[in-house]
């Protein structure tokens, strides 16, 4: 037993020495940030594989890898609408090798579930500003006026589906109800699959969703949009009225972008910002945007613009949430 103990201590010691050596050599190299990036970067995504935010992050990462000439891993840390990923990124050192790809940052921050807001994170760049539509089964409603009339006649009885709770979907439905002066019943669905079949199957009266995920369903005519949440009419849908036309000032959608822990060398942020701009402008990324109907609105915002935008949104959603939670 004694001998065993001794050898284990020896073993432990060896390993620790090894660790110390390894640590030393790495630290000396990590001081110059101009060499960034020297090694693999991790992008934490707070949503499961296959979702909108995940696909977005992976598409961008594919371009970034080429531009920065470095391996980039997408790590899915599902849970709490991105809160877990933000928490983990906050726990990692601010060395520029851990990024967060998120869509709900302003909302989770406004709701208070994300404890690390702009005091702890710096927005690097926004890639997408997605556009919502209000979708129905064509057999049920003809136009947005029809829909609003029906909602007026049956206050609180028209069900509108959305994914998740206390997210952009719910806020959008709530705001629509407010500005149109009607009472809508929001039904939070587990995922878009259940929601889509709910609308087609007639279990839900309507739903809010973006134009990308609904493309196939729209093209074969099983659902149709009543209104688009945007300032100007869409080129692809010239007959589709906008919310602004109707006098409703709700045009927000999910804004997908990247964030990094505060305290990261500004130089690194600049490098990342530049690389991301290149990725955004790349032919392949633009093609993807077009294929999944993400190009309806200009998505790009640089770090400074995106920070201002995020600030605004947090303030705005705080107010909305207060009313919503009354």
């Amino acid at each position: 037993m004694r001998v065993k103990m001794n050898i284990s201590i020896l073993f432990l010691g060896l390993v620790l020495i090894l660790a110390a050596c390894g640590g030393g050599s790495e630290q000396s190299g990590g001081e110059a940030s101009t060499n960034y990036p020297e090694r693999k970067i991790e992008v934490l995504v707070g949503h499961g594989a296959g979702g909108g935010t995940d696909l977005f992050a992976r598409a961008v990462v594919k371009e970034l890898e080429e531009i920065l000439d470095v391996n980039i891993n997408v790590v899915n840390q599902e849970g709490g609408a991105g809160v877990i990923a933000a928490q983990n990124a906050f726990n990692a050192p601010a060395d520029g090798y851990t990024l967060v790809g998120d869509a709900a940052f302003p909302i989770t921050t406004a709701a208070g579930t994300n404890k690390h807001g702009l005091d702890d994170f710096v927005p690097i760049a926004r890639f997408q500003s997605d556009t919502y539509g209000l979708w129905v089964n064509p057999a049920k409603f003809d136009s947005i006026d029809d829909f609003i009339q029906a909602a007026k006649d049956n206050p609180g009885k028209i069900t509108v589906g959305g994914t998740g709770s206390m997210g952009m979907d719910e806020i959008t439905v709530f705001q629509l109800g407010q500005v149109a002066g009607v009472e809508l019943s929001f039904v939070p669905m587990e995922g878009s699959g259940e929601m889509h079949s709910g609308v087609i199957g007639g279990h839900l009266d309507a739903m809010v969703d973006e134009f990308g995920p609904t493309k196939a369903l729209y093209e074969d005519g099983s659902i149709k949009p009543l209104v688009v949440f945007a300032e100007e009419r869409l080129e692809q849908f010239p007959d589709l009225p906008t919310t602004v036309e109707k006098g409703w000032d709700i045009t927000d959608g999910n804004e997908r972008g990247f964030y990094i822990k505060k305290g990261t060398d500004p130089e690194i942020i600049k490098i990342l910002e530049g690389a991301m701009k290149k990725a955004y402008d790349s032919e392949e990324y633009q093609k993807l945007e077009e294929e999944s109907y993400l190009h309806l609105r200009e998505g790009w915002l640089n770090s400074k613009e995106f920070t201002t935008r995020t600030e605004e949104l947090i303030e705005k959603y705080k107010a909305v949430m207060e009313e919503l939670q009354k």
């Binding site: 660790a19 390894g22 640590g23 790495e26 391996n71 891993n73 790590v75």
Partner: peptide, 17 residues
Amino acid sequence: SIPLPRGLGIFRQLSLL
């Protein structure tokens, strides 16, 4: 490409090797 727990401080550096 699954980053298993790296640990803190020098251990993090070690894992990065």
